[in-house]
Nucleic acid binder design. Sequence first.
DNA 1: GCCTATCGTAAGTCATGACTTACCAAGATT
DNA 2: AATCTTGGTAAGTCATGACTTACGATAGGC
Lengths: 100, 100
Amino acid sequence: MTYQDSLTALADSTRRQIFEHIARAPSAVGPLADQLPVSRPAVSQHLKVLSDAGLLVVEQQGNRRIYAVDTNGLKELRQYLDTLWDDVLGAFADSFEKDD
Amino acid sequence: MTYQDSLTALADSTRRQIFEHIARAPSAVGPLADQLPVSRPAVSQHLKVLSDAGLLVVEQQGNRRIYAVDTNGLKELRQYLDTLWDDVLGAFADSFEKDD
DNA sequence: GCCTATCGTAAGTCATGACTTACCAAGATT
DNA sequence: AATCTTGGTAAGTCATGACTTACGATAGGC
């Protein structure tokens, strides 16, 4: 639910590949597993982690489950990096003051 | 050296705290360890991971080593998220076309 | 109603990595 | 030069988590 969960979720290589696939086009579980070197249950588990992190949303379509990107999670993660970036800029400014 | 290493580096809670401290103000190893619930060697190891990921740079000052944020690593990570974001927007556009 | 397709969950295995203590190297201090 | 400070490295322990196979549950097709 937070940017921290998003970071740990996207830190895993397989999970990142899954997320990138879904980012380009929402998908069901089966097709994702076909394009990856891991089993379908593994993909299911990764999808759960990504969903719990707030990075994906699911839409049940009859038999299948279509996963798509939850923009809120991605937005929160980008905001976190923005604040880090601002902190760094602030630190630079402080160092210039001290150098004088 | 890549955004992937940056993600795994920032996925760890302790490492994230270290990075946030340094983002606000560059620091040596000892002071960092004092503010964290882990030992100094642990901090050293984390700093190595963050440096290898391209997120930190070191400046040797006599006895001490001052760690500061390497903006290149942070920039690369933000760019990666930007491309993801663009992919998602593109996917949305595609879905609208198909819905028509 | 039966069979197939789709997918989540349980249980177990195994590798990775975060942490500790112990040690060593090099600069600063007296 | 002896000592203290600072910090990186080695070795070992332990928990986490990524993966597998086996199973169960639900929806669709014949």
